[in-house]
Simulated scan of single mutants.
Amino acid sequence: MKTRNGGTVVRIAAPLWALLNRFYFLLLIVAAVALMVFGRVDAVVVDHARARVTDAFAPVLDVLSRPAAAAADVIESIRQLARIHGENQRLREENARLLQWQQAALRLDAENRSLRSLLAYRPDPAVSFITARVIADPGSAFLHTLVVTAGRRDGVKRGQAAMAGQGLVGRVVQVGEWSSRILLMTDINARIPVVLETSRRRAMLAGDNTERPRLMYMQRGAEVIEGERVFTSGHGGLFPPGLPMGMVTTGGGEPRVVPMVDLTRIEHVQLVDFGIPGGLAAEAVQPGAMQ
Results as ranks from 00 to 15, higher is better:
190 A>S: 15
158 R>I: 02
213 P>F: 01
124 D>T: 02
200 R>V: 02
21 N>W: 00
177 E>D: 13
266 I>H: 10
246 G>K: 00
16 L>S: 03
171 R>Y: 15
109 D>A: 14
184 L>H: 06
97 R>P: 01
9 V>N: 11
113 R>V: 05
244 P>A: 08
245 M>T: 06
103 Q>I: 12
288 G>E: 13
243 L>Q: 14
234 G>H: 04
101 W>R: 15
191 R>L: 04
55 D>S: 14
191 R>C: 00
17 W>H: 05
216 M>A: 04
195 V>T: 14
75 I>V: 13
18 A>C: 00
29 I>C: 14
183 L>T: 03
192 I>G: 03
117 S>L: 10
30 V>M: 00
88 N>C: 03
96 A>M: 07
170 G>H: 07
50 R>W: 04
136 A>H: 09
69 A>Y: 09
24 Y>R: 06
102 Q>T: 13
104 A>D: 15
164 A>E: 11
259 P>E: 13
6 G>N: 12
177 E>P: 01
242 G>C: 08
168 L>R: 10
76 E>M: 11
12 I>N: 10
153 R>D: 14
156 V>S: 06
167 G>T: 04
273 D>E: 04
287 P>M: 08
110 A>H: 07
209 N>D: 15
138 P>V: 01
3 T>A: 13
123 P>I: 00
243 L>G: 06
84 I>A: 13
184 L>Y: 03
102 Q>C: 08
26 L>T: 00
236 G>N: 08
59 P>D: 02
255 P>T: 03
223 E>F: 02
111 E>H: 06
186 T>M: 02
12 I>A: 12
44 V>H: 08
263 L>R: 08
194 V>R: 05
150 A>I: 03
40 R>E: 01
